[in-house]
Amino acid sequence: MPLAEIPLCVWRTRGLNFSFRGQTIRYWTAGQGEPLLLIHGFPTASWDWHYLWTPLAQRFRVIACDMLGFGDSAKPLHHDYSLLEQADLQQALLAHLQVEQPVHLLGHDYGGSVAQELLARHHEGRAQIASCVFLNGGLFPERHRPLLIQKLLLSRLGWLVGRSFGRDDLVRNVTQIYGPCTHPSESALDDYWSLIASNRGTRILHKLITYLPERVAHRERWVGALQADGVPLRLINGAVDPISGIHMLERYQELVPDANTVMLQGIGHYPHTEAPVQVLRHYLAFREQPLVNVPQRVAWS
């Protein structure tokens, strides 16, 4: 049975605000129980989790925010955006909500890199992470295959590329990274565009894209966090994603001890919107197992 959608107009009414370093951040929380932090990807926002939000909130205390520069949060123009600062933001949100117990993480794409930083902080004694599940993302930058638009945003003319980026460009790029049978509807594309364009967001796309070289700079520490013992991990991966699909899963299996992975056949870069029922099933199965490192296995779906 398909999961119910939360329309963006409804999602927006449920958000709350808090201040992070003088900037307004939009966040959402629901449910009770163990805290589960959902961390979205680039260039969208926390609405990406809307199919999973209600079923997860029936079991856990779910928490998500539009990170700085994304969605309906502040998008300051003269700002140097950083994955490290986004990890600071996630910890500040948890402190704002008075979450003191270890937190479970579910991160996608850009949010997966933020989760890697939080995982590294856990192993350094600066965060408390209970478990971490990754959806498609550039966990190993040497296997990440950026789109042309991402390369252009990183160029000297990136500011111009970003300011000229429009809905048609979004559609053209999104159709490249979804599965062949799971493309978003026109209505969903309108909503994605609304979140990107909110607060004149196209002016800062070239600043947000600096996460790509930042991944390279922190690669050893972040991969080391994946290889360390003590925090249960799983990768749920859309296999046909051209950016970080099966080639990223294979690298994960090469480098992560006792790699716990799930491959979703025919699914692209956004498993949680393309195949939310499967993602929910595989996430809940992960949470139901004992919180210890488990032997290597690959699930197919």
Score class of each variant (00 low, 15 high):
M1D: 08
L3C: 09
E5H: 13
E5Q: 14
W11E: 01
R12T: 13
N17H: 12
R21W: 14
R26Y: 15
R26K: 09
L36T: 09
L38A: 04
I39G: 00
L52A: 03
I63Y: 05
I63P: 07
A64L: 05
G69I: 15
F70T: 01
A74R: 06
P76K: 01
H78A: 14
Y81H: 04
S82M: 06
L83D: 00
D88K: 06
A92P: 13
L93R: 04
L93V: 11
Q101N: 04
Y110E: 02
G111W: 11
Q128F: 13
I129H: 01
L147G: 01
L148F: 11
K151L: 12
L154P: 06
L157R: 07
G158F: 09
W159H: 07
R163I: 12
F165L: 03
G166Y: 14
G179Q: 08
T182P: 04
P184C: 03
E186R: 13
A188Q: 13
Y192G: 00
K207A: 10
L212D: 00
V223I: 14
I246G: 00
H247W: 07
T261W: 12
T261I: 15
T261N: 09
M263F: 07
T273W: 13
Y283P: 05
F286W: 10
E288A: 15
Q296I: 07
Q296R: 14
